[in-house]
Design a protein around this nucleic acid. Structure first.
Lengths: 344, 344
DNA sequence: TTGTAGTGTGGGAGCGCTCTCAAGAACCGC
DNA sequence: GCGGTTCTTGAGAGCGCTCCCACACTACAA
């Protein structure tokens, strides 16, 4: 640092070198069409020679924007973070943002205090938009975002009536396909382990299950039977409990659709304990196609979500929303796919 | 936005309301001691009444800093990202940063082009410091950081001579403990599957293995025997290949220390294929204590790293380095711990 | 009394950009 | 060849902060 001057060239110096005014340089940098080819070339040359890089802070200050978006992760979910799910989402977001000069801010929220702080943060408009993962039904954040007119995209939705933009996987379709597959393989007593009923994703997967069961008509011992539905909580222990419950209620079960791989892992353990073989005695399907699925024994058939694509889409949708002034809400649902392994 | 004015109060308005000058408000905000109690109280009241939040961009511009640090993740590693390892690191970083008003920028680097761009990014001083995870030996980034005098902390190190600050786990100690445990349980032909030799972490774990073997004296069939060392690459397939190799060379192996859980999973598959039981015929220990370890069958004994603590420490060290003007390099090594499960 | 430190304090200058506006250059049709 | 467009351009005026200097004012020593 040579005293006063920090060493890095400024827009003014570029202008001087290119023999044009500051305004022209600014126009070139921002891709304005109203610049002559000659001026543009001169500016570009000067930028290259000087190795000029715009000062982000100055830009943000003058332009009243930040060129940054926040990825918000509620702390209870940081465990979930450990799933390929999250890393894929993040990779997708990163890929979509790569060609932009948007920055991705990681914001973990763990305490109500931090939540309040984040609200203030938003109110101070320190980001241009927000990406929210794993929202719960009672999450106040989306509403706050809406109220502040802050561009935002959710990963998943809180309900059918979700007003904020979201990108979601086709949970209903995925679950339906999984259960239909079980039925097609001749299973006649297909149970399901659900997620917490206050989560939309859990209800959706249950809906898919129900649709497949009701569509099967005579292919099953019974129609939709609540005794075949056990409630889990997306944890392994929850999967265990639910599986035990199911076996008490209907010992003859020959297939289980678990609404998450982790719960499937719990169920699998109980099946083993009770001397049931997978898939010979009981077929098992999970949801998410996480690492666990591949490493289970036998490898778990599971419903895959296009996770990276979801991340990309979230970023794209958010950028669109930031770009346009009117806030048109976008709702995107991406298809899921059944990945067949050895547990069916 | 009501025309000219964006609505958010500025420092100037706070000053007006508090009946002081701009300088005084700034001093209060930045915790300068040279403010009278009376003035301080007045300013604080005004801030509260107005709900004032400093404008980050203006601050950055005027103060020539950014209050942001970058977490850099090389793309090939984003898979790794899916490990609890990363999420724990990130959680640790987040925890340490929570009380600061530092922002965490997520930067994925996947192509050489993006790498170049990031270099430019750094040169433009758009962050106050950098956190680098999973550095490879030939990674030029740390040197670039050093050259730019940019505060930086690595997760792990490139070699014994690492000059940049780093926070690492005690890989040697962890590996030594794991192998010593195998020997203590009476295993006499303990093999190891290593990581790529151009990774320091892989060499460290091999060192630990060697130390334990050499310390065992008569407790083993032989001393350090290169036939018992097979090279993997931290992938499951690599673990498989290495395991096959070992079985060809020494069919009587009764224990394997894999330098990562994923490779242990690969090894386990081969052991199963060749009709060997774990742990009855061959005991198995991994490293990392990832989710896979818990879900393997039998559950894998593995060396746990204090991951969240590593994240915290990285952030703390980086903040210190940013705070002080002299760049004193810090090297922190945190202890590991053997988590015993059923594979030994 | 005068001098010498030492506190608090206000406000000018400036960080590096974008935006706006008016003026000059170039071009059009008649 | 003229008035009227349209395009291009330079530069002033900020954006909201921090830094720093100078000016009170106090306190105490000479």
């Amino acid at each position: 640092m040579n005293g006063r001057h920090s060493g890095r060239p400024t827009l003014e110096e570029v202008a001087l070198r290119a023999g044009v005014g500051r305004g022209t340089v600014s126009r070139v940098i921002n891709g304005s069409p109203r610049v002559s080819d000659r001026a543009k070339a001169a500016v570009e040359a000067a930028i290259a020679e000087l190795g000029y890089v715009p000062n982000r802070a100055a830009r943000a200050l003058a332009g009243n924007r930040t060129d940054a978006i926040a990825l918000v992760i509620p702390e209870p979910e940081t465990r979930l973070f450990a799933e390929p799910y999250f890393s894929d989402i993040i990779r997708g977001i990163g890929a979509e943002l790569a060609d932009t000069d948007m920055q991705l801010l990681l914001t973990l929220i763990r305490t109500p205090k931090e939540r309040a702080r984040f609200a203030q943060y938003l109110a101070a408009h320190r980001v241009d938009g927000v990406l929210l993962v794993s929202v719960h039904e009672d999450d106040p954040l989306p509403d706050l975002l809406e109220q502040l007119e802050m561009p935002a995209v959710l990963n998943g939705r809180r309900s059918d009536l979700e007003s904020v933009s979201y990108v979601d996987a086709d949970n209903v379709g995925g679950a339906r396909a999984a259960v239909a597959h079980l039925i097609a393989r001749g299973r006649r007593q297909v149970a399901t382990i659900t997620g917490p009923p206050d989560m939309y994703v859990a209800r959706s997967r249950l809906d898919g299950y129900r649709q497949a069961v009701e569509a099967a008509a005579g292919g099953l011992d019974s129609g939709f039977d609540t005794a075949l539905v056990a409630r889990g909580d997306f944890t392994e222990e929850g999967g265990r409990r639910a599986m035990r419950e199911l076996l008490v209620r209907r010992p003859g079960i020959d297939a289980v659709f678990a609404a998450s791989d982790v719960m499937a892992a719990g169920a699998r353990a109980v099946l083993r304990e009770t001397g049931r073989r997978v898939p010979d005695d009981v077929a098992l399907v999970g949801f998410e196609d996480s690492a666990i699925a591949r490493h289970m024994d036998p490898a778990l058939t599971s419903v895959r979500q296009p996770t990276e694509e979801m991340g990309r889409t979230m970023a794209r949708v958010l950028l669109e929303e930031i770009a346009e002034r009117e806030s048109v809400r976008r709702h995107v649902v991406l298809a899921t796919e059944l990945v067949q392994r050895d547990s069916v």
